[in-house]
Amino acid sequence: MSDINDKDKKNQVDEKGTSRREFLKEAAGGTLSAATLAAGAGALLSGKDEAEAKATWGEWFQKNYRLMTDEEKKEAVDRLEKRYSEEYGKKTSVDSVPAQEGVLFGYALNIQKCIGCRRCVYACVKENNQSRHDPEIQWIRVLKMEKGNFLQENMDKGYPDPAGIQVGGNAYQNSGVVLEGEHYYEPEQVPEKGHFYLPMQCMQCEKPPCVKVCPVRTTYREPDGVVVIDYNWCIGCRMCVSACPYWARRFNWGEPNLPAEEMNPVTHYLGNRPRMKGVAEKCTFCLQRTRQGRYTACVEVCPVGARKFGNLLDPESEVRKILEKKRVFRLKAELNTYPKFFYFMD
């Protein structure tokens, strides 16, 4: 438990904006020796050195995470911690905390409150070490939805059939329509007039189509309901990308570009540790945070409190109260994927 608190503290220090120099000093005082750091810097300059090559080989031959013994898990985690620490020049922790018993994570989003500011998108990128450019990866997408307006002049511009009888009309601009998947909006100010917003991310389905189609079982549902990916086992076939009805999965088309100074060193093996090229990734409900009893980055950052997160098995939790009291719906419910990501209105 002390270990967990330690990590938490470190993360907070980092969030306050510890300079990189201080971080390195701290790291040097810790388990990492100055020699390792020097070797790491060397590795950064020369591209590859023996230790890194060894780590690469070790990673290449490791088993599917779920099938590893505790020892093998520890070995894999140590190997990654060492490699990341060298690669990014700061002490990086790779967590392997398993799911807690009696916990099923759920999420509820108030579409009435969301103002489309996209702070959640950027907080998520920062927290979860997504590639910043080429490819630019964002796990959350905020859709701008059109509010309905009917124009009187369109009423009679219908489709008359040859007998002159009108069989349809042009007054069909209904509300809540996504026009061409509008998630690239860039207004001066949000919310914009005549619109509302619908953020989407991985729905953590109870019956996830992505898990079913994966040929090597690299993506699976954890006991706390989070669908995770073992990035080291993924073969990059993108069946999951095609099968996801919510467009939640992203692919590392090239080597991810994650600047060392922006890298978040508090990571989880199944969560936000830096990825490699050619593998799929997606939202994990920030399991590096939530398994330690913290909120996800998007919940923390939301300025209007539209995002709620909690344990679906706990009748007293906020999400359970919302499911009980509010008008709640799931996206694409007809597909029977049973998302644990709910939308609601006051």
């Binding site: 086992w233 993924c234 073969i235 993108r238 593998v279």
Partner: peptide, 20 residues
């Protein structure tokens, strides 16, 4: 050419990999 990680195709081999 389709695979993002052709180097990991062995994960598909029964026995040493796992097959869904």
């Amino acid at each position: 050419f389709h695979m993002g990680r052709p180097d990991r195709l062995w994960h598909l081999l029964p026995g040493i990999g796992i097959f869904n």
